[in-house]
Design a protein around this nucleic acid. Structure first.
Lengths: 203, 203
DNA sequence: TTATAGTTTAACCAAATGGTTAATTTTTGG
DNA sequence: CCAAAAATTAACCATTTGGTTAAACTATAA
């Protein structure tokens, strides 16, 4: 049972997010969601008619947040390189908060891409896409020319994967007698290495 | 029903791998595994006493394969840089074949790290670890000095993430009117960019 | 106060699920 | 060829699952 003053619908959504994230649509149990939300199972169906509807309600928000973070770059007046640094900082902040959501979304989208095509399409933003910003800077000869598509994937790989694979690395390192140290410190080191990669790419 | 001449146990393991990969231990259905294997559900329990036992049987092999690929570097007589190129080639070949397994393992390990600590520990290899090879080359001044731990994560990020997030990118690009082109060609481009990263890091 | 709409619950239900049993078919070895 | 062992199946079973129903509680507003 969570805080009593919180609105039931919010509690349900939080609980559902937790359970769906852990087990996916298929493996999630309505009873577990109800338990975590501290309510009766029937009330779940009162607020969200069925499992898929509840899943959609939880998921739509998360997906939007994720893609906005992944694709969009803040529209400031800074030079491109500085904007990318801000982008990296945002990515790390976001991923440190939602590491499980990242892997969950990746898996769900991978499993049935067609279901998500519609939802991804709907996500619009008034901020420019990373890839367009890069292309623009290249056209203006502000930065060295390279494939912005490959660069974007490289960049997101360097940011996202350490979070996705974090637990594996930790286990592996400790198992094999390496020193893991403080997790946040390691994340900072990795963040720096990403910025180093940007600097390298920009000449 | 799959090929009749294949041994039942193998067919079960293949079917189980497929279903567990899609839905995880929690969401997988024994009936679906039986159907895909083309057998009775009771026969499943005849070969593997219960769901967890079957899961373990499937998973143990996959986990081993995955970690050996991820951690280990071929012990050839080539210089370190060339050995890393071979490592990258192997990673891409492996991931192109098992893209779903990668994300599956990542999620399962992330969900309950403690369960996998034991299994990961058991995986031994007679080939040296990437991280040790790098440290050795640095000690011998063969390559520029940097943090081998961060480098290993960077390298694996650049290799693995494009496969994990592949379907997302494809959807996103097409949705926003970019040209995706041929998937394998894109993979080759990304592979080249990883090698470029190695070259940059090695001076 | 009281009628009303919104919220929450206990008790159900039909279907699905993991697992078992006992019988049947197939393979094996003498 | 035959009997023992191994492989396979149909028919079950107990429990869990998503979902429903009807009643009860609570806030609201006239």
């Amino acid at each position: 049972m969570k805080e009593k003053d919180e609105k039931t619908e919010v509690r349900i959504l939080e609980a559902a997010k937790e359970v769906f994230t852990k087990h996916g649509l298929y493996g999630a149990r309505m009873q577990e969601i109800a338990d975590i939300a501290g309510i009766n199972k029937a009330l779940l169906h009162y607020y969200f008619r069925n499992k898929e509807k509840l899943f959609d309600a939880v998921f739509e928000g998360a997906l939007k947040k994720y893609f906005e973070q992944m694709m969009v770059i803040g529209d400031t007046s800074l030079p491109v390189k500085e904007r990318l640094f801000v982008f990296v900082d945002n990515m790390f902040t976001f991923l440190e908060e939602y590491p499980m959501m990242a892997i969950f979304i990746l898996k769900e989208v991978t499993l049935n891409p067609d279901v998500f095509r519609q939802k991804i399409k709907q996500i619009k933003s008034n901020q420019p896409f990373l890839i367009d910003v890069l292309q623009d800077a290249m056209d203006k000869k502000e930065i060295k020319s390279f494939d912005p598509f490959v660069f974007m994937i490289n960049l997101q790989s360097l940011c996202a994967y350490p979070f996705i694979a974090g637990p594996i690395y930790k286990n592996m390192f400790i198992s094999h007698g390496y020193d893991w140290g403080n997790t946040h410190d390691n994340i900072e080191k990795i963040k720096d290495s990403v910025k180093e990669f940007i600097t390298f790419k920009f000449q």
